[in-house]
Simulated assay, not measured.
Amino acid sequence: MSVTAAGRSHHAARSEPHGRRSSLERVHRLLSSFDYEHTRLSLSDLSRRSGLPLSTTHRMVSELLALGMLERDEQDSLCIGVDVWKFGLLTPKAYGIQRVALPFMQDLYATTGLPVHLGVQEGEEVTFVESLRPRGGGQERPRLGSRYPLHVTAVGVAILAHGTHGFQEDYLAGLERAVPDGRQCSALVRRELARTRSTGYALTDRQTAPSMAIGAPVLDQLGRPLGAVSIIVPEGSAETPYGHLIRATARAVQRTAWEQGMA
């Protein structure tokens, strides 16, 4: 099994529900049923995708509609409400680093014309919170809000490489347990982490093949990752110049974050 597939299995194994679900967990499952491929759902589709009984879904949807967390479109389908979007804008982890990083990302994008991304850590995953890319350039992933296991994207590898030793070992041990060839996957990721610390940037094509993703961390003053930025370069591009560019961009974001008291 590939490292990418291992990542999905690793993530899935940790996402299985246990026991009776709380009301908050049920709300989370309902809202998590929406994604870029499913922005509008019927009540029955929402019940199926969330794994909740239709009666429970109907009752909770009524409450979420009244609270503005869900809305109905012109075809009477359910979709995410504006209030959820407003809550998302207040997320300090995403908004603070996004605000600082965006001007530098725009400079890099203007210089290269290549897709540039920003991600932040959420436990053992990375969430993409900003993205600049050419229209119609064929680079539709990652999308804003997309979440991946840390080891399957350049942004995530850059973050993982600068996590604590204990966190890295726990993550790699979990990866080893996830699939039969987990030790091989773990060994490969371990080499990538060492290389990332040595060069200052991560390199992977797991989510972008045949293009290559190059990512560099944004660290606080104690060396802990605030997030990471990445650039997607075409197949066959010289790695080193882009590696230096993304590393310089990350350091500019980092320096500004320090100056503004974020780190």
Rank of each mutant, 00 (worst) to 15 (best):
V3K: 04
R8D: 01
R8C: 00
S9K: 02
H11Y: 02
P17M: 00
R20A: 07
S22Q: 09
S23Y: 07
S23A: 13
S23I: 12
H28Q: 15
R29K: 15
L30M: 09
L31Y: 13
F34Q: 13
F34R: 08
D35P: 01
Y36N: 09
E37T: 12
R40P: 09
S42P: 08
S47F: 11
R49A: 14
R49T: 13
G51A: 06
L52K: 06
P53S: 14
T57N: 09
H58Y: 04
M60P: 03
V61S: 04
G68Q: 06
R72M: 07
R72P: 05
D73G: 05
L78V: 03
D83W: 03
V84D: 04
V84G: 03
W85C: 04
W85F: 12
F87H: 13
F87S: 09
G88F: 06
L90G: 12
T91K: 13
A94C: 11
G96E: 10
R99L: 13
L102C: 07
F104G: 04
L108S: 08
Y109N: 06
Y109H: 11
A110F: 01
T112H: 02
V116M: 01
L118K: 04
L118E: 02
G119D: 06
V120C: 01
Q121P: 06
G123S: 03
E130G: 02
S131V: 08
R133Y: 11
P134I: 02
G137T: 05
Q139R: 10
Q139K: 04
R141Y: 12
L144C: 06
S146G: 11
R147N: 08
Y148S: 05
Y148P: 08
T153A: 05
A154M: 03
A158Q: 05
I159G: 00
L160G: 02
A161I: 01
A161D: 04
H162F: 13
G163N: 10
G166Q: 15
G166T: 13
F167G: 00
E169K: 04
L172Q: 12
L172V: 12
E176W: 08
P180M: 05
R183I: 01
C185E: 09
C185L: 04
S186V: 00
A194P: 01
R195F: 10
G200M: 06
Y201I: 01
A202K: 01
T204H: 02
T204A: 05
D205I: 00
A213T: 08
I214A: 03
I214C: 07
G215F: 00
P217R: 11
L226E: 14
S230T: 06
I232L: 07
P234T: 15
P234D: 13
Y242L: 13
G243H: 07
G243L: 09
A248E: 14
R251V: 10
A252V: 14
V253R: 08
W258D: 08
G261E: 14
A263G: 15
